[in-house]
Each structure stands twice: as C-alpha cells, then as structure tokens.
C-alpha cells in the first residue's frame, strides 16, 4: 500500500504523490517547500499545534507552585522549567507556521476550544509533590512519546523535537529529584509523595492514547512516519522504565496487577479506566474549564499590549520610510 493513498489524484498530483511517497520510503525529511498531500499537512497541523498548546497549558499546573516553592533552589528550577515550556510552545508554533497557519489562528483554535491539548493538564496539581509527579511521570511519558518524534518525517517538527527532548530529560530528572527528596524526608513528606503518585500514575499511562485497536489515526501517522511506535508499545516501554525507578524511590505504583512477566520480558499491568480518559477528553476533567479560562484571561488581558506593540512597530516602520 502506498504511504499516502489518494484515489482522486490527477496525473500530475499522482507523480507528486509518488515523489512524496518515495521520500517517506527512503526515510528522507519532508521540508516546507516540498509538495505534500493535504491530509499529511492537516495531520501535522493538528498534531503539532496540539503539542504546542499542551506546552502552553502545561505551564499552568506548575506556574501555580512557583510562588510557593518550598526552597529557593526549587523555585529557581521550577521557574526555569516553566519558562522552557513557553519556549517549547514558541518553537512548535513557529514550526507549525511553516505549514501555512499563523500562531494567531492556532491560539484562536485553542481559546475557542476547537483545538485540543494533552488531557493530562486537566488534572489538578494541589500538592507540592505534584511538581515531582508531573516531572517524573508526565514529562517521562512525554519523553517516551517524543523521542521517536525527533525522527518524524516532517523536518521542522523533527528538528524542534531534538531541542525539546534535551530539555525534557532535565525536566524529568528534576521531578524525580523532588520525589526522592520527599521520600528521604519526614513522614508527612513521604505521604505527600505517595498520595501524588497515586493520582498521577494512571493518567500518565493514558497519555499514550487509547489502545491500538481503538486508535484510528495512528496507522496512517505510522505509515507517514510521523509516528514511529504504536500507543501500546510506547506505554509498555514507559511502564518498564518507571517500575525500577519507583522501587528506587520507595513509592508504590497503584496497580495491583503490576508484575514482571518472565515470558514476555516486560511488566504486565492492569486495565486502565478508559471511560475516565474519554470523559476528561470530552471536557469533564477536574480542570478543563479552569485551564482554558485562565489561558483566555491572560490572552485577553494582554490584548492591549500586543496592539500597542503593533501600533508602535507600524509607526516606526513608516517613519523609517519617510526618512529614507
């Protein structure tokens, strides 16, 4: 089967498509100036802008703790991390703009609820230990998802991901260190860490998306080499990674079915609550409304600043024209 099937292609379209398919087959990069099937472009815009939105919304649960971080070192690390996320959002919006959509249009889709962001940020972060769990589990799952994206077939996406992945691994480590400090701390701190891991474990596993059998977009994305591994493969890889880390931390992962399977050479784990996943996706998570309202408020309250910057730039440009 062709990587990109398009039954209605005209003869010239057909030869462009053949060239595109050949590039994909040879593991070459597609660049912004290359022809690409409309469906490929749309899939990328959807995935990349969702990814950018996730970085921006993802600033909120951690931004919520910057002013209360319990040590100045943790405050500095958290500020740097949230700032990195804003930077990731910027690269990703820029990379997506190469596909013919503007940042304003993408933000508009986010603010009107038309575009999605990672559902994980619709969970609340009421505890300091959540800064640890978000780093260790949420960023950990994000890395497992994102490392293969460094080889994504679309050039600007793959290159943006290389830089993002480097910073994400620092984020995961700082999350692990927060939990480690808590687990080495007082009883109250240990309880705080365990309670947080209890809340984040299953939602983090669901970040890889529904089981392969129920993930209709995945196969096409894999054929296009945007996505390189299936949801279930990535989830398994992630579980295999975090179990020994949890043992090192001394936290219990809240899954009675979690055990090593000698035959498979992997950890078995229990069924996830996919009803909850779809409910959060539909908008009934703990924080869907809160996250979006806060994002809209920041944007709306900043409108006059952006207008001022535009007006000033226009005036500066026209006085330059007069001078020349």
């Amino acid at each position: 089967m062709s990587a990109a099937t398009s039954p209605t292609a005209s003869p010239s379209e057909a030869s462009k498509l053949a060239a595109f398919d050949a590039l994909i087959a040879e593991n070459q990069r597609i660049e912004p100036s290359d022809w690409m099937p409309e469906a490929y472009r749309k899939t990328l815009v959807r995935q990349m802008s969702q990814h950018a939105h996730s970085e921006i919304i993802g600033m909120q649960p951690e931004g919520n703790w910057i002013t209360r971080a319990p040590s100045l070192k943790r405050k500095a690390i958290l500020m740097a991390k949230v700032q990195d996320e804003a930077g990731h959002g910027l690269y990703l919006y820029s990379a997506t703009e190469t596909l013919g959509i503007t940042r304003d249009e993408m933000l508009d889709q986010l603010h009107t609820g038309k575009a999605k962001y990672s559902s994980i940020f619709n969970y609340l972060a009421p505890s300091w230990a959540d800064m640890g769990s978000i780093g260790w589990l949420v960023d950990g799952a994000a890395i497992a998802n994102q490392v293969p994206l460094c080889r994504a077939s679309y050039g600007p996406y793959g290159r943006a991901m290389v830089r993002i992945c480097k910073e994400e691994s620092f984020h995961q480590r700082q999350g692990f260190e927060i939990l480690l400090a808590l687990m080495n701390g007082t009883e109250a701190q240990q309880r705080m860490a365990q309670e947080s891991v209890d809340r984040w474990y299953a939602p983090a596993l669901m970040m890889f998306g529904p089981p392969d059998a129920e993930s209709p977009n995945s196969q096409q994305s894999m054929a296009w080499k945007i996505k390189r591994f299936s949801n279930d493969d990535l989830r398994q890889r992630f579980v295999d990674m975090i179990v020994p880390q949890a043992e090192f931390l001394g936290v219990t992962l809240p899954d009675p079915d979690l055990r090593w399977n000698e035959d498979r050479g992997h950890y078995d784990f229990g069924e996830l609550d996919w009803d909850e996943f779809y409910a959060v996706l539909r908008g009934s998570g703990q924080a869907n409304a809160l996250r979006l309202a806060k994002r809209r408020a920041a944007h709306d309250e900043g409108a006059w600043v952006r207008e001022a910057a535009r007006a000033y730039a226009e005036r500066a440009a026209s006085s330059e024209r007069l001078a020349s």
Binding site: M59, T67, M79, A86, K294, A298, A303
Partner: peptide
C-alpha cells in the same frame, strides 16, 4: 514569578521568567 503563564504573549512569559530567574 507571578507573571509566568500570565504574560500578554509567550515571548514575555519567557522574558519576564528570565529576568525573574536572574534576579532570584
């Protein structure tokens, strides 16, 4: 630090965050 995630545009989340971080 109170500005981070609340700035008028992403570039300012980064800039005010950077300035705050240096100052810290």
């Amino acid at each position: 630090g109170e500005w981070i995630a609340n700035a008028p545009e992403l570039e300012e989340d980064v800039a005010l965050g950077n300035i705050g971080l240096d100052t810290l």
